[in-house]
């Protein structure tokens, strides 16, 4: 029973990891930008959802407002700043790192430095008995699992079954050739960056219900996302799914069963993957 609960907890964590890392890996795969501000989008999404829930009292609206706000912020930042330094890797890293400081300080000024936890209203604050067992599990965590699965299916459909998805995948393969096919790659970059920010913001809103939210949460989640995408394979959607499951489950088992080795449990798979298959489990070597 305990193992089942820990597995469910690990899956919840994996759900949050997936929301955050799928956005990160999409942006990296298409734009070759390691967006270090991705964690800051997560933090901002969490805070915005927190405030929206406080004011309006509706969690779903909170998630929506957080996702839309971070998407718009991502869109504006891509158009006004990242756009200008395209292709200059060092400048991209420094710029996104600079954005982290700015966003963090703005968040500190608005929401303060004390860790917050998003209190869910109504039914979501309660627990349900899982069918076929006597296991009682919080509704909020079940919601996270459900949302992560739905978003995953939605992303899969977008990437595999639509023309937009084909353009994004082609961009991962060879973005210069996508431009030479008559497709405005800059527009694709902006859309992907906004989508990545949306996913991070949504992850923050959901994550804030089970993880504490405060200064430093962004760095923690970014580290998790980095481990996830490196294990799964940078730029690979399936890799983000697999990486999230590995990182979420291992990290949670680690914390539950051998807390002193929790970080080891998280980073050991990273080291093993880097040694055996540096491009990630589902990653491709760039020829």
């Amino acid at each position: 029973m305990q193992l089942l609960v820990q597995t469910l907890n690990g899956l919840t964590l994996a759900g949050i990891m997936f929301l955050v890392s799928s956005g990160f890996t999409l942006v990296f795969g298409v734009m070759r930008v390691a967006n270090l501000a991705h964690g800051a989008f997560y933090l901002l999404g969490g805070y915005i959802a927190f405030s929206t829930v406080q004011v309006i009292g509706n969690f779903f609206l909170g998630v929506l407002v957080a996702a839309v706000t971070t998407a718009v912020l991502g869109l504006v930042l891509e158009r006004t700043l990242i756009n200008r330094i395209r292709g200059n890797v060092m400048a991209e890293v420094l710029l996104t790192l600079g954005l982290v400081f700015v966003i963090d300080d703005v968040a500190l000024a608005i929401w303060g430095g004390d860790p917050l936890s998003l209190k869910l209203p109504g039914l979501l604050a309660e627990s349900s008995t899982l069918p076929g067992s006597h296991l009682v599990y919080p509704n909020a965590r079940l919601l996270i699992l459900g949302v992560a699965v739905l978003v995953g299916l939605g992303l899969y459909y977008l990437l595999r079954r639509t023309r937009v998805g084909a353009i994004v995948r082609a961009g991962v393969d060879d973005r210069e050739m996508v431009g030479a096919m008559g497709i405005n790659v800059r527009l694709v970059f902006t859309a992907v960056f906004a989508l990545g920010a949306l996913l991070a913001g949504m992850g923050g809103a959901l994550g804030a219900t089970v993880l504490t939210l405060g200064p430093g949460s962004d760095a923690t989640i970014l580290t998790f996302a980095l481990v996830t995408v490196i294990v799964g394979g940078l730029g690979s959607f399936e890799g983000a799914v697999l990486g999230s499951l590995i990182v979420g489950l291992l990290s949670n088992y680690g914390e539950a069963y051998f807390p002193s080795l929790a970080h080891f449990a998280l980073f050991a798979p990273l080291v093993v993957v880097l040694l055996i298959r540096p491009q990630g489990v589902l990653g491709r070597t760039t020829a």
């Binding site: 023309r163 084909a166 995948r169 082609a170 393969d173 060879d174 050739m177 996508v178």
Partner: peptide
């Protein structure tokens, strides 16, 4: 292009219809 540069993760049909 030189070196062909097919979109390797797209199907043949997706390669053809992309542009």
């Amino acid at each position: 292009p030189q070196g062909r540069r097919v979109f390797s993760s797209l199907t043949v049909e997706e390669n053809l219809t992309l542009g």
